[in-house]
Amino acid sequence: MTWMQYLAPLLKGAQVTVMISLASIFFGAILAFAAGIARTSSNRVLSGIAFVYVVLFRGTPLLVQLFWFYYALPLIGISFDPVTTGITVLSLLTGAFGAEVVRGALLAVPPAQLEAARALNFSKSYTLWHVSMPQAIIEMMPAFGNLAIQNLKDTALVSLISIADLTFQAQSLRNITLDSATVYTLTLVGYFMIALCLMFVMRFIEMKLRRGPAFPRSAHS
């Protein structure tokens, strides 16, 4: 087998990796906004729940979370297929880190903006969605970009719960061919290329959000 022949299985794995990464970034973003907003809410119960969630998932290793959901939960009668488990855990982790980004950006909105909104009699939720969020979301983008890359790298761990992603395919390929150097080099390059695409997409979204004269000075270098 030459390295060209490795490409087919690796590409198949890469597809799974991309799928899992995109899905968990998507659900993670939803969780991030939900938990981040809840963290800044004046409702004690809501912000308490969000706090516990964030501490729990930020404070424990991903691999432990993954194994816990994969091996331990079924023992108390809750089980999903590996892909669902993988996406769920990665979404929860990304959401917990994203929640801190959302919260930080919301808290960084100048208080004067909130006072202006109050003077115009906007309701709290209207202020959140029409005054704070549009200004905060742009500040979140660079950190979200980093989280997306981190998420992509984290997907490699789902190979350990028998999901046939890029890393999993690399492992099987190595076990057949014993050509470790080639297989893993190709795999690393594969991840790097996916990461570059992801970075490009995130930059593009940021640029789109930043376009126009509304935020001329806060542009990042």
Partner: peptide, 19 residues
Amino acid sequence: HKIRSNVGMVFQSFNLFPH
């Protein structure tokens, strides 16, 4: 909300919504 509907304010630093 009812009270604020009577009052408006102009701030030293304008505080327009930049977006």
